[in-house]
Amino acid sequence: MGAFGLLLLAAMLAGLGLGRLSIPLPTVAAILFQDIVPVTKDWSVLDERIVTLVRAPRILIAALSGAALAMCGAALQGIFRNPLVSPQILGISSGAAFGGALAILFGYSGFMLVGSAFAFGVLALLSVGFVARVDGRTETATIVLAGIIVGALFAALVSLVQFVADPNSSLPAIVGWLMGSFASATWPRLMLAAPAIAIAAIGLYLLRFRVNVLSLGDDEARSFGVKVERDRWIFFILVALGTGAVVAVAGVVGWVGLVVPHAARLIVGPDHRILVPASALLGAAYLVIIDTLARTVSASEIPLSVLTAIIGAPVFALLLRRSRRQENAR
């Protein structure tokens, strides 16, 4: 766990220094701590602005988003007892993507964009709940299928929005936003998303052992006195909050919620008391690193989802083969 924390700190510091305009690490540290530690100001105003106004909020948003997505993924994978589940499975991402695309289509940005993305994310979750509830009961397998149905519907609606969008103005904006980027990160944006992400993260952290309880299985948990439906909805709402907020500020960032909990599980084991916070730290570090790569490896920024998939897919394949081999060798 400590190692994950150090990794995150190192990634954030490196992220502050790296970029089109490279700033040496000691200078970054001096800029950050100038109010606390007496230092001689030997850096330019531009350097300070880049660090405090451009890169700092961006890195914080990346870290928060990575932590939120990874925690959501870890919790969902536990509740569904399925390591292939990710926040996307509940249709929340697709719903939020539609909300955001719709807002851009009508020329909105900023608060309206975030609000619309978030609102449609919640709407998607409610639809999933409605579809999956049969005769007053909601079974785990039905939720997954309902999530796929609702997700597919909203994905189609996103395509429809793109189809009617103006190819000269709103279409590129929609496509760019959908592929995910922290380029628009500013302090006000961070403040917009941070409360929702914080609520989701704190909630998931406090409820982390409940994931173990729910992962016993619906029937067993019920017989031991757990209100399975109610508890599961509390998790879904927290996941909707976290995922919706991330999609709202950064677009659809895939793979983090799927790959990171998986990797963390291989290192710290399956107990969610440790797995949930470990996933948060690892997810935050992962997304900060990905975002730093996105804005440094080429002249123009690479969309996040492209990088998370290009790095995530092979890593996931490796993890899959390794855990499969462990199973066979036992």
Binding site: G78, L207, N212, V213, R265
Partner: peptide
Amino acid sequence: IGYTVRQIVATGRVALRGLFAM
């Protein structure tokens, strides 16, 4: 999921005790 036997048995005990119980 890969829990140990002890974790499985202890978890059954915590189920009733509320959302934040460990």
